[in-house]
């Protein structure tokens, strides 16, 4: 029982990081109707950049977020303008495959530059942990979760309280109507994609402190992100966050109780069980029309 609670705590903490990464994916899906298959590799990319910043300049990973988030924002917005916008007229699946190819290309570049040995970012507090009521709370995961919650909070404020947020939500709901009402859909979509990729920047920085990573880790991360997307219903922000935390907990509990080998797999099983009952995911709406 103690083990179960302990695993749940660790799972919730890591679920926060997944939630951050997946919320970017959801935002991008909202404005482009495309799943960002490169989201995972952007996280790995920023984990590597954090690694370099930490190694070369001694910059704390939690602070490097301040550099990485704007940088990734620019990358995401530029990617929309150059690569995704020209495809807007064709089907969403084409953009999806393009993003997948971009992911593989970036992985190739990272493997070239950093080689394929796994890395881990180890700041001074790597092994630090606190004991609260008999349960261990690892510092790194706690900070990571805290950062994730902070960024998610900022995103939430942007989405609900600013003009850009209104434009983003309008575009996600109905691009044609949004355009008719005076929203610059192109610009909003570019900014939305920028924000989405920026969350990968923030999540990647802390991800690199928690898990050892190399270019290939993107597949592992991608499968988690995609599962969260399906379970959460792709376009729903609350759904995404709930699904991400559920994933974190299931993964962590299975790793503790059964075997780490099967932890990723267990979530896929849950996913398929849910889908057999609700093909649109837990919070999703039914898609109409063959997209």
């Amino acid at each position: 029982m103690h083990l179960l609670v302990q695993a749940t705590i660790v799972g919730i903490l890591i679920g926060g990081v997944y939630a951050l990464l997946a919320s970017g994916q959801t935002m991008i899906y909202g404005v482009t109707r495309t799943i960002n298959f490169a989201q995972a590799i952007f996280a790995i990319l920023s984990a590597y950049l954090t690694y370099t910043l930490f190694g070369a300049l001694g910059l704390d990973p939690l602070l490097s977020v301040l550099v990485l988030v704007p940088a990734m924002f620019v990358v995401g917005a530029a990617m929309y303008m150059v690569l995704i916008r020209p495809l807007a007229r064709s089907s969403g699946e084409l953009a999806l495959i393009v993003l997948y190819a971009i992911g593989i290309g970036i992985q190739g570049l990272l493997d070239l530059v950093y080689k394929t040995n796994t890395r881990l970012i180890t700041p001074s507090y790597t092994d630090l942990s606190w004991t609260v009521a008999g349960f261990q709370i690892p510092a790194v995961r706690f900070f990571a979760c805290l950062l994730a919650v902070a960024v998610l909070g900022v995103l939430h404020v942007i989405r609900l309280r600013t003009k850009l947020g209104r434009a983003l939500r309008a575009t996600a709901e109905n691009p044609v109507a949004a355009r008719l009402l005076g929203v610059d859909v192109e610009r909003t979509s570019a900014l939305g994609m920028g924000l989405g990729v920026a969350t990968a920047g923030a999540a990647g920085a802390v991800f690199g402190m928690i898990f050892p990573f190399n270019g290939n880790t993107q597949y592992d991360l991608l499968s988690k992100l995609l599962s969260i997307g399906v379970l959460g219903g792709m376009a729903s922000m609350p759904g995404t966050i709930v699904a991400a935390v559920v994933l974190g907990v299931i993964e962590s509990v299975v790793a503790a109780e059964i075997s780490p080998d099967w932890s990723a797999f267990s979530f896929l099983v849950v996913l398929f069980c849910v889908l057999s009952v609700r093909p649109q995911g837990l919070f999703g709406q039914r898609l109409r029309g063959a997209l």
Binding site: E93, S223, V230, M234, P279
Partner: peptide
């Protein structure tokens, strides 16, 4: 369908 299918197939 569409994106969800792509995603499940890779899963």
């Amino acid at each position: 369908r569409a994106a969800t299918f792509a995603l499940l197939s890779i899963t």
